[in-house]
Design a protein around this nucleic acid. Structure first.
Length: 314
DNA sequence: CAGTAGACCTGATCGC
DNA sequence: TGCGATCAGGTCTACT
């Protein structure tokens, strides 16, 4: 569910509210939500207890908090608390009376304490996830191949191991757009598939893929190996632009399922041109937006601005 | 190797 | 009211 702008909104909230805090308790209410942690729920808890959260970092839709071991503890390799929100995950920061709020879909609660207890008091980082496609785990950090920072929010040239295969995203200053253009044009598939492939470029999901394609006037089934360089650049520019605009509005949410760390929804859904707009007029030409089944999900296009390519193989 | 369908979950909504 | 089918913003794995 959450794509880059939504995850970045959450990262920013974590950077403001929980960075610097120390883990004093961990409650795993649903084992499946920590399935990616090697040592299971008990190991997950053990590895977090006493650790300090050092930063809030994001690459694409992956989010992590590097751990600073407590003074005097025996430290292994550098590690981080890794989160992926999947389709319905939320990270909510609760403190004071709100600590009593327990969502029915609360899967993991990480209880935190700040050094300056007079200012913060007890605090919890709640992982709430209806569909449970999201997950939390503690992961070793591995070096990035290019030596550049692993993601937005840190200058560490390292990423959690499960993020090593994820490409940089369009808000990453170290991303080289020319390389992404080449990678897209080298593939033999439809352009939307390439845009959604997180190893090519990360952070783009179904909403922003459709919005970017509409802005770039490209059909989702356009074969990548027929794309001209300027067309591919136009697409990446459009994707970066639409995600930046969405971020400025706190992200896209259709309901209370996607919220920031304070439980508030973003407003970008009002600005969507085609996604979810079947039967509504295209904001550019007035032609009615159509919905197609594609990759077992939906794709929305303006049939006039984005005509299906005649030689499209999909 | 690259590309693609299916699996993994829960809940809301719609038509009968 | 109940039941089944369908839909939802993602990613990993196991095929071809």
């Amino acid at each position: 569910m959450p794509e880059l702008p939504e995850v970045e909104t959450v990262r920013d909230g974590l950077a403001r509210h929980v960075v610097g805090a120390r883990v004093v308790d961990v409650e795993v209410l649903r084992d499946y939500s920590v399935r990616r942690h090697e040592g299971g729920p008990a190991g997950f808890r053990d590895e977090l207890l006493g650790q300090r959260l050092g930063a809030a970092v994001r690459r694409g839709k992956f989010l992590w908090l590097p751990l600073e071991p407590a003074a005097g503890s025996v430290d292994g390799p550098a590690a981080a608390l890794l989160a992926h929100l999947g389709m319905s995950g939320q990270l909510l920061v609760r403190s004071g009376v709100a600590l009593a709020d327990r969502s029915p879909h609360l899967r993991v609660r990480v209880v935190l304490e700040h050094d300056d207890r007079t200012a913060y008091g007890a605090q919890a980082l709640d992982f709430v996830d209806q569909r449970t496609f999201g997950h939390l785990s503690v992961q070793d950090l591995v070096p990035t191949p290019d030596g550049a920072p692993g993601g937005l929010g840190s200058d560490l040239a390292a990423v959690p191991a499960p993020v090593a295969h994820i490409g940089r995203d369009l808000l990453d200053p170290s991303l080289r757009r020319d390389d992404v253009v080449d990678a897209i044009r080298r593939r033999r598939t439809g352009v939307k598939r390439a845009l959604l492939d997180q190893t090519v470029v990360s952070g783009v999901g179904n909403i922003y893929a459709d919005e970017a394609l509409w802005r770039a006037r490209l059909h989702y089934a356009r074969a990548t190996d027929t794309l001209r360089r300027p067309e591919a650049h136009r697409l990446l520019d459009a994707a970066a632009e639409v995600m930046t605009e969405a971020l400025a509005q706190g992200g896209t949410s259709f309901d209370a399922l996607y919220v920031n760390v304070n439980g508030q929804s973003g407003y970008f859904s009002r600005s969507l041109a085609v996604y979810g707009q079947e039967g509504e007029p295209c904001p550019r030409c007035g032609t009615l937006v159509r919905r197609d089944e594609f990759m077992n999900r939906s794709s929305y296009t303006c049939p006039r601005c984005q005509p299906r390519p005649r030689n499209g193989r999909w």
